[in-house]
Amino acid sequence: MNPTSYLAAEAPNPVLPHPSEIILGLIAFLLLLFVLQKFVSPRFEKLYAERAERIEGGIAKAEASQAEAQRVLQEYKAQLAEARAEAARIRDDARAEGQAIVDEMREQAQTESARIVAQGQAQLAAQKAQIVAELRADLGRMAVDLAGRVVGESLEDEARRRGTVDRFLDELDAVSAPAGK
């Protein structure tokens, strides 16, 4: 016998396990596999389904919130556009009203100016008439005094004096009227 073969027959092979260990390991593995499939795997599946449901619910809720936010944004934009249009309309109305007030005030000022001018012209005409009357009276008195001195007799008679003064003034008006035109 070979001394090496003797040693090989007596020593177990370290790479191959003993058949009883293989059977015991296989039974333990199958038992562990049964426990995992019966108790652990359904629990993991349940937790996974709950988590997936929560995530999908969160996504759906987020999409709903985003859709609501988009709707609110559109409403806001529509209200903003409406407010801008209303502000433009109010601004245009205010401009038109302001222009109407300016036109009305201008018309009132022109009317008042025309009234003041007319009143001033009437007052000037009245003063002119008064001055002409005073000048006629003074001129008539002076003319009578001068005529009395020239003629040498007194022209104290009222009717004669008035006739003389009127005739003199008429002649004076006739002479000054063509020159005034």
Rank of each mutant, 00 (worst) to 15 (best):
G57Y: 05
L124Y: 06
F168Q: 07
R51A: 14
E21S: 08
K128C: 01
L32C: 11
A52H: 05
Q121A: 08
A129I: 06
T164G: 01
Q37G: 04
S41A: 15
E104F: 00
T111Y: 03
I116E: 13
A87I: 09
E171T: 04
E158P: 12
A122D: 12
R91P: 01
I116T: 03
L32P: 03
D157M: 12
Q127V: 03
I55H: 14
E56C: 07
E86A: 15
E45R: 13
I90L: 11
L26D: 04
P3S: 10
A49F: 10
S154H: 01
A81G: 06
R106Y: 06
A62L: 09
E63Y: 01
E107A: 11
T111E: 14
M142H: 11
D173R: 01
S5K: 13
E104C: 00
V144F: 00
A49M: 09
L80K: 05
Q66K: 11
T4M: 10
A126Q: 11
T164P: 01
E68L: 14
E56D: 11
Y76D: 09
L31N: 12
Y76F: 06
E68C: 01
G180R: 14
Q119L: 11
R136S: 03
N2Q: 09
A28V: 08
L32R: 07
D103C: 00
A96H: 09
G57Q: 15
S5D: 13
V151C: 09
Q99T: 04
V40D: 10
Y48Q: 14
M1G: 12
S41T: 13
A109H: 06
A88V: 06
A94Y: 04
Q108W: 08
N2G: 12
Y48I: 08
K77W: 05
L31T: 13
A109K: 08
V132Q: 07
G163Y: 11
L47N: 13
Q130Y: 02
E107T: 10
E104A: 14
I116G: 00
L16Q: 12
A122G: 05
Q66G: 05
E75A: 10
F34M: 07
R89D: 06
